[in-house]
């Protein structure tokens, strides 16, 4: 309960930080965006549109209450179009929420596919490297995972494109996803970005699983299980793994949080229509309402997953579940 409250407080603080950061823009950002040559009417129009003529505190609470009701505002590009074309015609305005909605579900789909591959893979590999520790297999895995962690995502992405899309056309290198697509085709087009993300996060999870298991191997009950004559596989899977669950769950949740932010670069490489690509495009065009909204969503998911990690690690440990 205390942790939930703490998470909520963090979220509020983060929203304040994001809001303040955006309002640090020189002068008034209607002018900053339109540039020096803008007419007074255009600037006034945008100010009106965005409610810039109120105090920052009022605007913050307006923004916050809007966000809570699912209203993220109007993108600057739309606001500009309106102010240039005269009065607000309503009707054909695309709000930020409408722009983000389908993209967010695309991004979550991508993150979900990557997690569905990465989590079982990394735990299996972690168990195997713990089982066959200090063998050639373990060392080869150590070197290759260390290399995968330290390579930039776009390098991994281009290597995968090179081998799996250009030289051996197994998967398409562009993920042009649109609504109403068949699931299998969508999966096929998501495969390369998902594999890139898998490569990026598997290493970390695998290394933590291995470390957590090896830490436990010196415990007396493992010794006991070995002396009873159990097979090494059974000792690890039945006796060590349940006790190593807390650190493993934490690292899995942290890496899922990383997945959600790591999508930015990967989505740009594969032109995947997700929220990360929208974010980067808005950063380049300085579309502040969209940047603000995307940033808030990323931060919220990140905080939520961190919170989940905390709660799950408590739930998985009986000693923490029933404090004395």
């Amino acid at each position: 309960m205390q942790r939930l409250l703490l998470g909520l407080v963090t979220l509020v603080v983060v929203s304040i930080i994001i809001f303040t950061a955006v309002n640090l823009l020189p002068g008034d950002f209607a002018q900053a965006i339109l540039g020096q040559g803008a007419t007074e009417e255009a600037i006034a129009g945008i100010r009106e549109q965005l409610g810039l003529n109120q105090s920052p505190v009022t605007r913050y609470f307006q923004w916050l209450s809007g966000v809570l009701q699912g209203d993220l505002g109007v993108p600057l590009s739309q606001a500009m179009m309106q102010s240039f074309s005269g009065a607000s015609t309503g009707g054909n305005v695309i709000t930020v929420a409408e722009q983000i909605g389908p993209r967010l579900s695309n991004t979550l789909f991508l993150a979900g596919v990557s997690a569905a591959i990465a989590v079982p893979l990394s735990i299996t590999l972690g168990v195997l490297t713990a089982l066959y520790r200090n063998t050639a297999f373990d060392k080869a895995m150590n070197i290759s995972t260390l290399s995968a962690i330290s390579s930039p995502e776009f390098f991994l992405a281009y290597i995968l494109i090179l081998f799996l899309a250009v030289l051996n056309p197994i998967f398409p290198s562009l993920s042009n996803i649109f609504p109403g697509m068949e699931f299998s085709e969508r999966l096929n087009k998501t495969m390369l970005p998902a594999l890139t993300l898998t490569l990026a996060v598997t290493a970390q999870m695998m290394r933590m699983t291995r470390a957590a298991l090896i830490n436990l191997l010196a415990a007396p009950y493992i010794e006991m299980a070995r002396l009873k004559g159990l097979s090494p596989m059974r000792v690890i899977v039945k006796h060590a793994l349940p006790n190593a669950m807390a650190p493993i769950i934490t690292v899995v949740a942290l890496n899922l949080a990383y997945l959600v932010t790591g999508v930015v670069v990967v989505e740009v490489v594969f032109v995947y229509p997700g929220i990360g690509q929208l974010f980067v495009d808005s950063v380049k065009t300085r579309d502040i309402p969209v940047v603000q909204a995307c940033c808030l969503i990323f931060a919220a998911v990140y905080i939520l997953l961190n919170l989940t990690a905390d709660i799950l690690s408590i739930l998985s440990n009986p000693r923490l579940r029933h404090p004395k």
Partner: peptide, 23 residues
């Protein structure tokens, strides 16, 4: 520091870079 670390690093950097380029 806790509050700043609650925002993912790359996202925060991109947000601040937007403002910096405007400056």
């Amino acid at each position: 520091v806790d509050a700043l670390m609650a925002i993912p690093a790359l996202i925060f950097a991109l947000l601040l870079m937007t403002i910096a380029t405007a400056y």
